[in-house]
Computed example of a mutant assay.
Amino acid sequence: MHILIAPNAFKNSLTALEAAAAIQKGLYSSPLKCTSTCFPIADGGDGTAALIIEKFKARRVELKVQDALGRAISSSLGFIDKGQTAVIEMADASGLRRLKTTELNPMMASSFGTGQLISAALDEGVSKIIIAMGGSATVDGGCGILSALGFAFLDEGNRKLRPVPRDLIRLNRIDASKADPRIVNCEFIVLCDVDNHLLGPNGAAAVFGPQKGADTKAVAQLDQFLSRLARIAEAQSGRAIDKLSYSGTAGGAAAGLHAFINAKLVNGIDYFLDLTGFDEELKKADLLITGEGSLDAQTLQGKGPFGVAKRALIKNIPVIGLAGKVPLSPPAELLKYFKALMAIGNEPVPLSEAVQNTAINLERTARNIGDLLDSANT
Rank of each mutant, 00 (worst) to 15 (best):
M1Y: 01
L4N: 09
A9G: 14
F10A: 11
S13G: 04
L17A: 15
A21D: 11
A21Y: 07
A22F: 05
K25Y: 08
G26C: 05
Y28L: 13
P31M: 12
K33Q: 14
D43Y: 04
G44T: 02
G44Q: 10
G45P: 06
D46R: 09
D46L: 05
A50Y: 07
I53P: 11
K55E: 13
R59M: 10
R59P: 09
R60V: 15
V61E: 15
V65E: 09
A68R: 02
L69Y: 05
R71E: 14
I73R: 05
S75R: 05
G78P: 08
K82F: 10
V87C: 05
M90N: 08
G95Y: 06
G95E: 03
L96I: 13
R97T: 12
L99P: 02
L99D: 03
T102F: 13
E103H: 13
E103I: 09
A109G: 05
T114F: 02
A120D: 12
A121W: 07
G125A: 01
V126L: 01
V126K: 01
S127N: 14
S127H: 11
K128V: 01
K128S: 14
G134E: 00
S136E: 01
A137N: 06
T138Y: 02
T138C: 05
C143V: 00
L154Y: 00
D155M: 05
R162C: 12
L168Y: 01
I174Q: 08
D175T: 11
A179N: 03
D180C: 13
C186L: 11
L191C: 14
N196V: 00
L199H: 02
G200P: 03
P201C: 04
P201T: 06
V207L: 10
V207P: 11
K212V: 01
K212I: 00
D215F: 04
T216G: 06
V219L: 00
Q221R: 12
F225C: 03
A230G: 03
E234I: 03
S237K: 06
R239V: 15
I241C: 09
L244Y: 02
G251L: 01
A255E: 04
L265S: 03
G268W: 01
G268S: 04
Y271A: 03
F278N: 06
L282R: 08
L282E: 14
K284L: 13
K284T: 15
G291M: 07
S294K: 15
A297M: 12
R311Q: 15
P318A: 02
E333N: 10
E333C: 11
L341P: 04
M342S: 12
A343P: 11
G345W: 10
G345K: 09
N346A: 12
A354L: 09
A354P: 09
T358D: 09
I360R: 13
N361A: 09
R367P: 06
D371G: 06
L372P: 04
L373A: 04
T378N: 15
